[in-house]
Design a protein around this nucleic acid. Sequence first.
DNA 1: CATAATTTTGCAACCGGGTTGCATTTATCG
DNA 2: CGATAAATGCAACCCGGTTGCAAAATTATG
Lengths: 146, 146
Amino acid sequence: MKNKAIELLNSVSLRRTGPRLAILEALLNADAPLTQDQIADAIGDSAPNKTTIYRTLTHLVETGLVHEAFLENRSQHYELAHHCGKQCCHPHFTCRQCEQTHCLTGVSTPLVELPKGFSIQRQQIHIDGVCPDCRTRNKTKEIGQI
Amino acid sequence: MKNKAIELLNSVSLRRTGPRLAILEALLNADAPLTQDQIADAIGDSAPNKTTIYRTLTHLVETGLVHEAFLENRSQHYELAHHCGKQCCHPHFTCRQCEQTHCLTGVSTPLVELPKGFSIQRQQIHIDGVCPDCRTRNKTKEIGQI
DNA sequence: CATAATTTTGCAACCGGGTTGCATTTATCG
DNA sequence: CGATAAATGCAACCCGGTTGCAAAATTATG
Ligand SMILES: [Mn+2]
Ligand SMILES: [Mn+2]
Ligand SMILES: [Zn+2]
Ligand SMILES: [Zn+2]
């Protein structure tokens, strides 16, 4: 993953520094959007200062490598943009029971057709409900209660 | 609008108080989701304490009268739920130039078809780009420059 | 290589949206 | 009206995120 991180940094001509590589690696290993806090946790003891993480993420967003994901959570989430189309990101699903967010990279996501005069730059879809794990968990519990 | 507000409060059997009526009226008059701050501004001098506004909004969301809209803004927005289907809210469009948010109540919004096992409770779509006003403003500016 | 110019990083202090605890006020009902 | 439960206001707090500034690391220049 380190090679991939270096490659990504080069592709947008940002200087190759320790913090940046670590943050990119964390995002490469993630399977859902991460907050600053989660990125720091993923990196561990050698994690950069939170200010550095935020500033790095800002750079990565500006270059287009990273997208901001707007989940219902109070804090901002970030993920690599490589699963997103130019105008349409893949949808995100957040489970109301376990609070986990899933990237729905497989599903087809039609663009909303905008009224005359609006020009789109990016569309994001967020869904919440109950995830497969929690559903089966609920069912087995029900059965147990009968 | 005051009658409508009273009616709404009755429909969910919440006590009829000054702050609640004022907040509902503000939401009834709005044409886009509002923050606590914007609600207070809309009400003016007689606006309730911000804690009261937040607690009222929480009540209204719990009863289903009001929805939370997750815009890219750092603060939470609220709007009446009457333009939303059971599982699918109307999309919101935020202009990157003038920062204004528009409710797209007219457009058709297909539900994403979820992978096996996921059960939906609510889908929200957010789009950003340039609004009609800003687009024409840009065009006339371009012409002026030539 | 030395050193000056430029970026990047870390730290502490700060900002602002939102919440909590608690005392006071108000709505509802008999 | 009085009792009771709910609603309100205020101050203090929480926490995600930002800012200013000095120290460290990179890069450019002679
Ligand atoms: Mn994703
Ligand atoms: Mn709306
Ligand atoms: Zn779940
Ligand atoms: Zn605009």
